[in-house]
């Protein structure tokens, strides 16, 4: 068999046998292939999916159910000796306190929204790991020797991370509802809006962590960075606790932390709580965050991948 018979649409031998003519010239041709490759590893391996869900679920269970702030104030949890305050009044006081502090009467629902941001951040942090692996295994060089656009290589990592985190967040939300998250204020549009904000959050953070990983050849460095940033980012936001009770310096950090804005959107749209800022501002902030960092990521990838 000769090359001509097996490749229809080819220029005959004697000219260009490489079939460069049939190769797509669209700059996006490899984007979906690269993204799907990342996703396949994830959805074809249920263990990884399951493991990635365990941590937020644990947090939900331990934090959300154990730190039962509501119970602190209700049902005779406290009384002042000498003053015989009726139970109903204490319960009402407790409820008001909860509403005042958390914007909802149970901490579990408050935390559940925070956990949605948590899983997004967690997934994004590891999006950088895959490019480190690709580099170590030589896959990155292999991909770069093909006519795939350099930007597509980075964009595929970001996209797959976004898709993964949104799906994982949806599972977390479902589990939270099963465990007793309040659904009284949820609407379809609200849920869609909340997930859109999560996607934006994921876009921005995935870009950041990919940029950190672009030149790295060592997954230990990447792990160290992830571990270093993990908790400060989460606790320095309103995901676990309302910012209004934090010291001023921490509040200032919470105000720039994009996690706060995604969580704020989630609380407003899913729980109907009063927000830290207006919905429009929240969305604008997140969109700007995602746009700026993904743009920087793509520009950097151009420069760093072509040495």
């Amino acid at each position: 068999m000769t090359a001509e018979t097996i490749s229809p649409g080819t220029v005959p031998a004697g000219q260009d046998r490489s079939n460069s003519t049939i190769i797509s010239s669209s700059p996006y041709h490899g984007l979906w292939a690269l993204t799907n490759r990342e996703l396949k590893k994830w959805y074809k391996n249920p263990v990884i999916l399951l493991l990635s869900l365990i941590q937020p679920v644990l947090w939900l269970g331990l934090f959300g159910k154990a730190m039962n702030f509501g119970a602190v104030f209700t049902d005779g949890a406290f009384n002042i000796p000498g003053l015989n305050i009726p139970k109903e009044i204490i319960n009402q006081l407790g409820n008001m306190l909860m509403l005042n502090v958390f914007g909802t009467s149970d901490y579990f629902s408050f935390l559940a929204v925070g956990m949605l941001s948590f899983i997004v951040i967690f997934t994004a942090m590891f999006s950088g790991m895959s490019i480190v692996w690709d580099r170590r295994l030589g896959t990155l060089n292999k991909v770069m020797s093909t006519p795939v656009a350099r930007g597509s290589i980075v964009m595929s990592k970001i996209l797959s991370s976004v898709i993964r985190s949104v799906v994982q967040a949806a599972i977390i939300l479902l589990l939270a509802v099963l465990f007793g998250m309040s659904t009284s204020s949820m609407t379809v549009l609200g849920v869609l809006g909340a997930f859109f904000s999560l996607a934006l959050l994921s876009f921005g953070f995935s870009s950041i962590f990919l940029m950190l990983a672009l030149r790295s050849t060592n997954q230990n460095t990447q792990m160290a960075i992830v571990n270093l940033l993990n908790l400060p980012l989460l606790f320095g936001s309103n995901a676990l606790f309302p910012a209004s009770f934090m010291p001023e310096w921490l509040q200032a950090f919470v105000k720039v932390n994009p996690i706060s804005y995604a969580t704020d959107i989630g609380r407003q749209l899913l729980l109907g709580s009063g927000g830290m800022a207006s919905l429009a501002f929240d969305f604008a902030y997140l969109a700007a965050f995602a746009a700026v960092f993904s743009a920087v990521g793509i520009v950097l990838s151009w420069r760093l991948l072509t040495k």
């Binding site: 049939i22 797509s24 041709h29 590893k41 896959t139 093909t146």
Partner: peptide
């Protein structure tokens, strides 16, 4: 190096390469 993806099948790997060329 062995760059093929261990988690995917041989066929999936080769199709992945084809997609990178936009064939």
């Amino acid at each position: 190096e062995y760059t093929a993806d261990e988690d995917l099948t041989g066929y999936e790997n080769i199709m992945f390469c084809a997609d990178l060329y936009g064939i």
